[in-house]
Design a protein around this nucleic acid. Structure first.
Lengths: 227, 227
DNA sequence: CGCTGGTAAGTAAATACTTACTTATAAGTG
DNA sequence: CACTTATAAGTAAGTATTTACTTACCAGCG
């Protein structure tokens, strides 16, 4: 009441509300978060929130878009891939980047999981602009590896997804169920292990010992649903 | 009003309500599902629901427990592991089982994701009784493989998680973002690919790398003692 | 009758959103 | 400099609807 009379500028207040809302939506989802709670946590009245955003839905979108735009995930992976070096090193660093990001900021993954589950249309758009790109960057790396004979010939997109699956699934399990005390692993060990399994798994077979049947015909074309 | 007067027995009505609630909770989560909607879909009044369950929370628990108990996931994997056979075949079948189950019934995974995100305490219990067990069964397989020299020496639990991560992450992506038209893969190809990457990745180093000198003799210790 | 399956009609609290009203502040103007 | 003034930041006190849950009552049947 008589405590703080700091009047924010419109832009600053908007940012502050977005920040508060981000945390709450990430923790409890869209439906589980009330405008009242957001207002209280931001130290303002609900009315002010509706002055900045036409409705709760729009606030939610703004939160997600802000998070996404500042994330730029494929970009960081591209950097890692471009610095070059040992394959094992490269993949470990990609894995490590995933785990680190989550450790630093859990809000993004929770936000996106919630929105995907609650089927907000934005999540579809998000996938196409963000996740699909992420996969594609790594797939390109795989494709190049196959071309140079470093990797065997499997669907690059599938191989990329598999690698990221190992890492991301791991971090989800940790985030959703693990806390810090249960089935926790040293991140470095996780990254190394996962990278080495995948890498060795992708190495071409020995040309002499052709014991194993080929998985896919040579120069496999992208397999989008064979039905 | 005057249409159907079928009076169910208490047990039958309970089951029916549970069935309806299961679908709704899976689609929209706990908070997104109203008791009114459940009642409407079940063709009864809310009052009847509260006659069968003391509250919404208890109904939710009943839904989850029912789903879990009839799922018995580790059991099916144990069976597959016990039938023995080729490692590649075995792992493909495990993967395939995961994908099939999800294709047949999406409710379980969605239910569990929601409950984990919404931090219902049950989800912790669920993880320990169900997911952890699932990991452990496969980890045992890995451990045995390491002992017999078929696999290299990595943390068995981590290796198990990694394999399941490849498969489960894939199915989540499909479920959450994919629909049926986007980045869809032939399940059989997925299973084979993923299994073969992981398997080859787990083989002891000297076995398939032509460059490295063999350090260990004999790797065919016991061929048919998989279990 | 009495017991079981079922309902109509509530209630109190919460929720998203509004309306009408205050105040702080920066920019003129004399 | 004081002094108005326009305006943007902010609020108190709603409202209509929804939500989980209750109470009191009904109907068929052995």
């Amino acid at each position: 009441m008589a405590t703080s009379q700091t009047r924010y500028s419109s832009a600053d207040r908007r940012e502050q509300i977005l920040g508060v809302a981000t945390g709450l939506f990430a923790q409890q989802g869209f439906r589980g978060t009330t405008t009242k709670l957001i207002a209280d946590r931001a130290g303002v009245t609900e009315a002010l929130i509706f002055r900045h955003f036409p409705g709760k839905e729009e606030l939610y979108w703004a939160v997600i878009e802000r998070k996404i735009s500042c994330a730029a995930p494929g970009e960081r992976m591209r950097e890692i891939l471009e610095t070059g070096g040992d394959d094992l090193e490269t993949l470990s660093r990609i894995a490590s980047q995933v785990l680190e990001r989550r450790a630093k900021d859990q809000t993004l993954s929770r936000l996106l999981l919630f929105s995907a589950l609650e089927k907000h249309e934005l999540s579809q758009r998000f996938f196409q602009n963000y996740v699909a790109d992420y996969f594609e960057v790594l797939a390109r790396f795989v494709r190049k590896g196959i071309a140079t004979g470093r990797f065997r010939s499997v669907d690059p997109l599938l191989a990329a997804r598999s690698f990221l699956g190992m890492v991301i699934y791991h971090s989800w399990i940790q985030e959703l169920y693990g806390g810090k005390h249960f089935q926790d692993f040293d991140p470095q060990v996780v990254c190394r292990t996962v990278a080495s399994i995948w890498l060795q798994g992708m190495r071409p077979e020995n040309k002499n010992s052709a014991r194993r049947p080929r998985l896919l015909p040579r120069k496999h074309v992208k397999k989008h649903r064979v039905n």
